[in-house]
Design a protein around this nucleic acid. Structure first.
Lengths: 107, 107
DNA sequence: TTGACATGCAACCATTTGGTTGCATATTAA
DNA sequence: TTAATATGCAACCAAATGGTTGCATGTCAA
């Protein structure tokens, strides 16, 4: 999995909004996803391309419409890898400051 | 919590690398964090500023050095909110495609 | 007290990003 | 078959981003 693409795709507020919309109702068309937003359909298209490249969204051409579906897998993978990492270091994090201060003052 | 700042801070590979370095050893100075990287100390400074603004890193001036500490809280918060969201929709995600296809073919 | 070291600040630069407009193409429905 | 609808493609633009260099300031140690 390309976690760089995932992180970068999630970095933009508009793209997170699109993800939220899809989460509320999966399988929406490009036009539906563009409705009521403060940007053009073409801008939405670009965002969706990035989300697809990050594998966060899968799309399917159905006649003249393009349907979009969320793929929750990469988010979960990232979460597990990153949260796991930080949980492991979490206990120590606060006391680290104290420890460092003590070792410095001993010099 | 400003989750936009957190997402944007994590979007950059160099900043994730700095987080990794801090995870391996917490409380490092700017100079230490800059060692052996393909960018200048000044670039690292800028990255650390963003990480601090996102509350992912806290710093502490100790004499002429600046020590940096990871704050695992925002990452966990984001994880819980986002993963929670997606876990809830996870079960339905795959079947949504089938459902949509069926409803379309019925038209 | 002076030189070395750690960091801060500001100006500048190239590239990426997020957006637009205009037009082309494909599909559906009347 | 033709008009409306849905999407695709390309050129263009402003602003943000990630980086640099040069110099200033603050602190420690000999």
């Amino acid at each position: 999995m390309d976690d760089d693409a995932v992180f970068r795709a999630l970095a933009d507020k508009s793209r997170r909004l699109l993800m939220d919309r899809l989460r509320r109702r999966n399988g929406q068309t490009l036009s539906e996803l563009s409705e009521g937003l403060a940007m053009t359909r073409q801008a939405v298209t670009k965002h969706l391309v990035l989300l697809e490249e990050a594998n966060l969204v899968a799309s399917l051409r159905q006649g003249r419409e393009k349907l979009h579906f969320i793929n929750p897998v990469p988010i979960n993978e990232i979460a597990e890898r990153w949260i796991g990492k930080f949980d492991r270091s979490r206990l120590g994090a606060l006391s680290d400051l104290k420890t460092v201060l003590e070792s410095k003052s001993r010099k």
